[in-house]
Amino acid sequence: RPRTRITDDQLKILRAYFDINNSPSEEQIQEMAEKSGLSQKVIKHWFRNTLFKERQ
């Protein structure tokens, strides 16, 4: 599977949600997927990776 490139606009959407809640529900993930055009799997990975980076 090729690597997914996240655009600046998509990143703004993900960051806005992350700043509010770094552990989103399935409904929130689905909402982000619809708004951003990214798959739910990509969003879950982004949140997991970003949370890991923030904790270091």
Results as ranks from 00 to 15, higher is better:
R1M: 01
R1A: 03
R1W: 00
R1G: 10
R1D: 15
R1Y: 06
P2L: 10
P2A: 07
P2K: 15
P2E: 15
P2T: 13
R3L: 11
R3V: 11
R3E: 14
R3N: 11
R3D: 13
R3Q: 15
R3W: 01
R3G: 14
R3Y: 13
T4D: 14
T4Q: 04
T4H: 12
T4C: 00
T4P: 07
T4R: 02
T4W: 00
R5E: 15
R5D: 15
R5V: 13
R5W: 05
R5Y: 14
R5I: 14
R5M: 15
R5K: 15
I6H: 04
I6W: 01
I6P: 08
I6S: 04
T7N: 11
T7Y: 02
T7M: 13
T7D: 15
T7S: 07
T7I: 03
T7E: 14
D8P: 13
D8W: 09
D8A: 10
D8N: 04
D8I: 13
D8K: 12
D9G: 07
D9W: 06
D9P: 12
D9C: 12
D9L: 10
Q10G: 01
Q10K: 02
Q10L: 01
Q10A: 02
Q10P: 00
Q10C: 04
Q10H: 04
L11R: 11
L11G: 06
L11F: 07
L11M: 07
L11A: 05
L11K: 15
L11N: 11
L11E: 14
L11I: 07
K12L: 12
K12N: 12
K12C: 08
K12G: 07
K12H: 03
K12S: 09
I13L: 09
I13G: 03
I13A: 03
I13D: 03
I13M: 10
I13E: 06
I13W: 07
L14R: 00
L14E: 00
L14H: 00
L14D: 00
L14C: 01
L14K: 00
R15S: 12
R15A: 05
R15K: 13
R15H: 03
R15F: 04
R15D: 06
R15G: 08
A16I: 09
A16D: 11
A16V: 05
A16H: 14
Y17S: 04
Y17G: 09
Y17N: 13
Y17P: 00
Y17C: 05
Y17L: 06
Y17M: 14
Y17H: 10
F18P: 04
F18Y: 13
F18E: 03
F18Q: 12
F18R: 11
D19R: 12
D19N: 14
D19F: 05
D19K: 14
D19E: 14
D19L: 14
I20G: 11
I20K: 15
I20C: 08
I20F: 12
I20E: 13
I20R: 12
I20Q: 14
I20W: 04
I20P: 13
N21D: 11
N21L: 08
N21G: 04
N21H: 08
N21T: 12
N21M: 15
N21Q: 04
N22A: 01
N22D: 06
N22S: 15
N22L: 03
N22Y: 02
N22M: 14
N22F: 01
N22G: 12
S23Y: 13
S23V: 10
S23L: 09
S23W: 06
P24S: 01
P24R: 01
P24F: 01
P24Y: 01
P24K: 00
P24E: 03
S25P: 04
E26G: 06
E26A: 11
E26T: 15
E26I: 12
E26C: 05
E26F: 14
E26L: 11
E26W: 03
E26P: 11
E26K: 13
E27G: 11
E27V: 09
E27R: 11
E27A: 14
E27P: 04
Q28W: 02
Q28F: 02
Q28H: 10
Q28P: 01
Q28A: 09
Q28L: 08
Q28D: 07
I29H: 03
I29Y: 13
I29P: 00
I29Q: 07
I29T: 04
I29A: 03
I29R: 05
Q30F: 02
Q30N: 09
Q30G: 08
Q30W: 03
Q30I: 15
Q30T: 11
Q30K: 15
Q30E: 06
Q30C: 04
E31K: 14
E31A: 08
E31H: 08
M32C: 06
M32S: 01
M32Y: 05
M32A: 01
M32L: 04
M32K: 00
M32T: 01
M32W: 01
A33D: 03
A33V: 06
A33R: 13
A33S: 11
A33P: 00
A33N: 08
A33W: 01
A33L: 03
E34D: 12
E34Y: 02
E34W: 04
E34P: 01
E34F: 02
E34R: 09
E34G: 13
E34I: 05
E34L: 10
E34A: 12
K35H: 03
K35S: 05
K35F: 02
K35Y: 01
K35P: 00
K35R: 05
S36Q: 03
S36N: 03
S36Y: 04
S36G: 04
S36M: 05
S36H: 03
S36P: 00
G37F: 02
G37Q: 10
G37K: 10
G37A: 06
G37W: 01
G37I: 01
G37L: 12
G37N: 13
G37H: 07
G37V: 02
G37P: 00
L38R: 01
L38H: 00
L38N: 01
L38K: 00
S39V: 09
S39W: 00
S39R: 12
S39Q: 00
S39E: 15
S39A: 06
S39D: 01
S39T: 07
Q40L: 12
Q40P: 08
Q40Y: 06
Q40V: 08
K41W: 07
K41Q: 04
K41H: 13
K41R: 09
K41C: 13
K41I: 08
K41M: 07
K41D: 15
V42M: 11
V42Q: 11
I43C: 03
I43N: 00
I43Y: 00
I43F: 01
I43D: 00
I43Q: 00
K44V: 05
K44D: 14
K44G: 12
K44Y: 13
K44I: 04
K44T: 11
K44L: 05
K44W: 03
K44R: 12
H45R: 14
H45N: 10
H45M: 10
H45K: 13
H45P: 05
H45S: 12
H45Y: 11
W46I: 03
W46S: 02
W46C: 02
W46Q: 02
W46A: 03
W46F: 04
F47A: 03
F47T: 04
F47D: 01
F47L: 07
R48Y: 03
R48P: 02
R48M: 08
N49Q: 06
N49E: 14
N49M: 08
N49V: 07
N49I: 13
N49K: 15
T50K: 11
T50I: 07
T50V: 09
L51H: 09
L51M: 12
L51D: 10
L51S: 08
L51W: 06
L51I: 04
F52W: 06
F52A: 11
F52C: 15
F52N: 15
F52D: 09
F52I: 12
K53R: 08
K53C: 05
K53H: 13
K53A: 13
E54S: 10
E54F: 04
E54I: 02
E54V: 10
R55K: 15
R55V: 05
R55E: 10
R55H: 15
R55I: 01
R55S: 12
R55T: 06
Q56D: 02
Q56M: 07
Q56G: 02
